[in-house]
Simulated scan of single mutants.
Amino acid sequence: MPLVSKKSQSHQWLRWFLKVAFYRSRGQQKPLFRLLFASSVFLVLAGTIINYPGSKLLAQKPISQDLEAASFFQQGVMRYNRNDLQGAEYAFRQALQKDSNVSAARNYLGNICLQQNRLDEAVQEYAEAIKVNPNFSEAYYNLGLVLHRQGEKQAAITAYRQSLVINPTNPTTLYNLGLVLYEQGQLQEAIAAYQQAINLDNSNANAYFNLAIALQEQGNIEMAIATYRQALQLNPKNATAYNNMASLLAIHGQPAEAISVYRQAIRQNPKNASVYYNLGVTLYNQGDIKKANGALKRAHNEYRQQGNIEQAEKIEQLMQQIAQKKEQQQPQVNQAATPSQTPESTNKLEQTPVPETQNQLETPSETPASPSDVPVSVEPQSSSTSSGQ
């Protein structure tokens, strides 16, 4: 019998666990998994949690009936807030030795593990948190977060969805769910998740941006353009959004506005070779050969500086072909081209725009302009604050 690594066994168990959790909980509001954890076969994991954006854990009962556990927990919180992660971890583990059911300590330990890139330990902490409190939606969210980072995307989807079964109105869970669904190629479901996230929080520029990308790939050009506009209203410095929107405007028969939007993209990022290339092609298709050559020359120089010699040589060939046609001054107006394409003829430059980038995981500690997957803790309001034991 072939040997299986402990990590592989853990992930196999976790995928089964999440699958059972999700399907057993549909239509239920009662605590989940009580029967699952009654078995002595259950894999005991060392546990934690991370809280998601805007979540507040209200004081329902004391953090622990054990005064020593409560004291160690408070010490851990203070050290964590001072970025003394080693001291905080020691204090939280001391609290758990006194009382293994302090869910808030599990939460902070998970934060520490994730910040230190101890991802397998973080997974274990979240699983232990779920064992203590099967209705802990934040624990499922955080489990999804770390699984997503590990590349366990299907398991992450299941964890995010389980979090939404318990708390369906958290926009960040929906946002991250949309992101991983998009990465899995499930465009329609990703679009639905982003739209729900926006309905709950219409101030998230990244949600609009990622929704626009998904709509663009789906072929819904008009809706994608409108959504890029909304993203840029919230974040007018997003050069990629300008570039993507301009490409869509060009193929949608709005070249004049496309040229203007490409120039806005350049103002935000003067080193973006693909924007210069797209601008040059659009200008060429509009018959402005002189300005087209200027933009293509800048694209050529930027690609060379980036070390992309292959693309620079393609642009050289294109410029030579345009020069041969310059006397005719009769370019056929069509659509802009992406940096990765070489036109079949200089009379017809076509584009199938591909979104440049997709935003990464968002958590409450970061602004939408620079999302990351660093966890955030919700501090207890007093020594009697509960974290959802």
Rank of each mutant, 00 (worst) to 15 (best):
M1H: 02
L3H: 15
S5Q: 01
K6C: 05
S8F: 14
S8Q: 14
Q12V: 14
L18Y: 00
F22R: 00
Y23S: 05
S25E: 10
S25I: 00
G27A: 11
L35G: 10
A38F: 03
L43W: 09
P53F: 05
L57E: 06
Q60F: 06
K61Y: 13
E68T: 08
A69Y: 09
A69F: 08
A69N: 05
Q74V: 12
M78Q: 11
L85C: 06
E89M: 10
Q94R: 13
L96F: 04
Q97T: 05
K98H: 06
N101F: 02
V102K: 11
A105V: 11
R106N: 15
R106K: 12
Y108A: 10
L109S: 06
I112V: 10
Q115D: 06
Q124M: 13
Q124W: 11
E125L: 14
E128L: 06
V132T: 10
N133E: 01
P134Y: 06
P134G: 12
N135C: 07
N135I: 07
S137I: 02
Y141D: 00
L147Q: 01
R149A: 03
Q150M: 07
Q154V: 04
A155K: 03
A156H: 01
A159W: 00
Y160C: 00
R161T: 00
N167H: 02
T169H: 11
N170H: 12
P171L: 12
N176A: 05
N176Y: 04
L177H: 01
L179F: 10
L179D: 00
Q186D: 00
L187T: 02
Q188D: 09
E189C: 00
Y194W: 05
Q195E: 08
N199R: 04
A205N: 07
L211S: 12
A214C: 01
E217K: 15
Q218M: 10
I225V: 12
A226C: 03
A231H: 09
N235S: 09
K237I: 14
A239P: 00
T240N: 08
Y242K: 05
Y242H: 10
S247P: 11
I251E: 13
P255I: 01
A258P: 05
I259K: 09
I259F: 09
V261K: 11
R263E: 04
K271A: 07
Y276W: 09
V281T: 01
N285S: 13
Q286V: 14
K290N: 13
K291P: 01
N293Y: 12
L296V: 13
R298P: 03
R298M: 12
R304A: 08
Q305L: 06
N308R: 03
I309G: 10
A312I: 11
A312Q: 09
K314S: 03
K314W: 10
I315Q: 06
Q320M: 01
A323M: 14
Q324A: 03
Q330M: 13
Q330R: 15
P331E: 08
N334R: 03
Q335R: 11
Q335V: 05
Q335F: 13
A337N: 03
T338K: 12
Q341G: 02
S345I: 02
E350S: 15
T352S: 15
T357F: 04
E362S: 08
E362R: 07
T363Y: 11
S365A: 04
S365D: 07
E366H: 12
S372L: 03
V376Y: 02
S383G: 07
Q389H: 01
